[in-house]
Amino acid sequence: MSLRYIPMPTDQATSLRQGGTDAYGNLPERQISDGDGVPCRHCLRNVEAGDAYLVFALRPFTSLQPYAETGPVFMHADECPAYGGQAQPPILTTSKDYLLRGYGSNERIVYGTGGVIPTEQLESRARDLLAMPEVASVHVRSARNNCYQCRIENA
């Protein structure tokens, strides 16, 4: 089973870069990266030291409902290409572990699927979760701060 790593939508990234507001109705904050732990949720690469990035609230769900978590994320301030590969993205190789959680097609958490997984087991755990008939997608989050990284689906 092949996996597909899905970044935040390009139209949303473009809107934020052009003065649009985030999930809380706020303008993104502009910062300069120190090169340490600033993962872009659009290209799924780290923002290099000295490069500008935006900090904003992201709700990676299509509807407002009790399970639609919202939290702070980063993105290159300047245009970058959306990640489009099936290989594990660069931002998912920078920590020793990640929180994975399965969601149904209704965007609700599938209970019993959440857990902190060592990086080297991320893909096998995602495949196991996506093999469950009730799991439509897997969210990858920071194991330390619970920040959303990306979504994984079957390719």
Rank of each mutant, 00 (worst) to 15 (best):
R59P: 02
C150M: 11
K96S: 12
P28T: 07
R151F: 06
E79V: 09
Q86D: 14
N46V: 07
V140D: 04
Q86Y: 12
A87P: 05
R17W: 05
Y98V: 02
I109E: 13
F56N: 01
G25C: 08
S15L: 09
T21K: 14
I109M: 14
N46D: 13
T10Y: 02
C40P: 09
Q88W: 01
F56Q: 01
A77R: 02
N146P: 04
L27T: 10
G115C: 07
A57P: 01
D22L: 02
N145R: 15
L64I: 14
E79D: 15
C80E: 08
G84Y: 07
L16K: 01
S33G: 05
I152L: 09
N145A: 13
N26Q: 15
Y103P: 01
E69Q: 14
D128Y: 00
Y83N: 06
Q121L: 09
N46K: 08
Q12V: 00
T21V: 15
D97K: 09
G71K: 05
M132K: 10
Q149S: 13
N46Q: 15
L129Q: 00
V38K: 03
D11A: 03
A52C: 09
V110C: 09
D34V: 10
A136F: 08
E120S: 10
P39E: 03
L16H: 03
L3G: 00
E48L: 09
S2V: 11
V116G: 02
C150A: 14
M132C: 11
Y148G: 02
P89K: 00
V140G: 00
L27V: 11
T21H: 10
P39M: 10
V138W: 01
V73S: 12
Q121C: 07
Y83V: 07
P9K: 04
Q12C: 03
P60E: 08
P118D: 05
G50N: 15
I152A: 02
E120R: 14
N154T: 15
A126E: 00
L54Q: 02
P9L: 03
F56M: 10
R108M: 14
E107L: 10
V140P: 02
S142H: 09
R4D: 06
G50E: 13
L58M: 13
N26M: 12
E107G: 10
G50Q: 14
P9S: 07
P28D: 06
M1S: 11
H139P: 06
M1F: 10
Y67K: 12
A13H: 03
L58G: 01
G35C: 11
E120W: 08
R45T: 15
L130H: 04
S33Y: 04
M8Y: 07
P89R: 05
G114F: 00
Y103I: 05
A23W: 05
A126L: 03
V47I: 14
